[in-house]
């Protein structure tokens, strides 16, 4: 199986790298948007406890929705292409980041927060200098989960014309081109595992510098 895989890539370098690039751009954009939405939202919810319970419950429902359902449900409204895929993947990555960030920030020891207030720090200063640094490992764990989920679900973007490595699989299925199918499968699997390893490594680095 290894020979035909490399032959296929060697014969179709442009198709392969375009798909890989689309996959990375789509995933990175979705992760960036999910972060830009979830992190400020977590800080806002910290001060607004009653809304927080509702928001977390809603996000828990969102987390349960199967990735394919989330990707296609907006098809009639948003149509096909990069944008609807981006919207769906952003929503898909949001729960892991928001729940981890909110939980970690709200679990920072009340005594520490009180001591900081006593020293005359403002609420914004407390969030920035005390709560965020203390909650960082758990926040980062959520980001890692979201990154792997997004890279994984981005494969399904091929079904709504969003491009990416999933297109190698759907094209391979369409023409019964087994080498292309296997190339797509291996590339997607490798990218997901690499994402997990890279974020895991970054997480360990982060935790080590904090303890040093």
């Amino acid at each position: 199986m290894v020979g035909p895989v490399f032959t296929w890539i060697a014969e179709h370098p442009k198709v392969f790298w375009t798909a890989a690039q689309q996959h990375l751009v789509l995933s990175a954009a979705a992760l960036g948007l999910a972060l830009a939405l979830a992190l400020p939202l977590a800080v806002v919810l910290l001060r607004w406890r009653r809304a927080a319970a509702t928001a977390i419950a809603l996000v828990n429902v969102l987390r349960t929705i199967p990735s394919l359902a989330l990707l296609v449900v907006m098809l009639p409204i948003l149509g096909t292409g990069f944008q609807p895929a981006l919207v769906a993947l952003t929503l898909y990555g949001l729960p892991a980041i928001l729940i981890n960030a909110y939980t970690a920030l709200s679990e920072v020891d009340a005594d520490i927060v009180e001591a900081a207030t006593g020293q005359g720090l403002s609420r914004a200063q407390i969030v920035r200098r005390i709560q965020v640094p203390l909650a960082l490992p758990v926040i980062f764990a959520g980001i890692r989960t979201a990154a792997v989920q997004i890279v994984s679900a981005a494969t399904l973007a091929a079904f709504i014309g969003g491009g990416g490595l999933g297109e190698l699989i759907t094209a391979g299925m369409g023409t019964l081109d087994i080498p292309q199918l296997v190339v797509g499968g291996l590339a997607v699997a490798a990218l997901a595992i690499l994402t997990e390893l890279a974020f895991g490594l970054a997480e360990r680095r982060l935790n080590r510098t904090r303890h040093a």
């Binding site: 792997v148 994984s152 299925m173 296997v182 797509g184 590339a187 997901a192 595992i193």
Partner: peptide, 16 residues
Amino acid sequence: VLYTIPALALFALLIP
């Protein structure tokens, strides 16, 4: 490792 492999990719690899 198995858990990390995206569903569509695992299907593609099982088909052969």
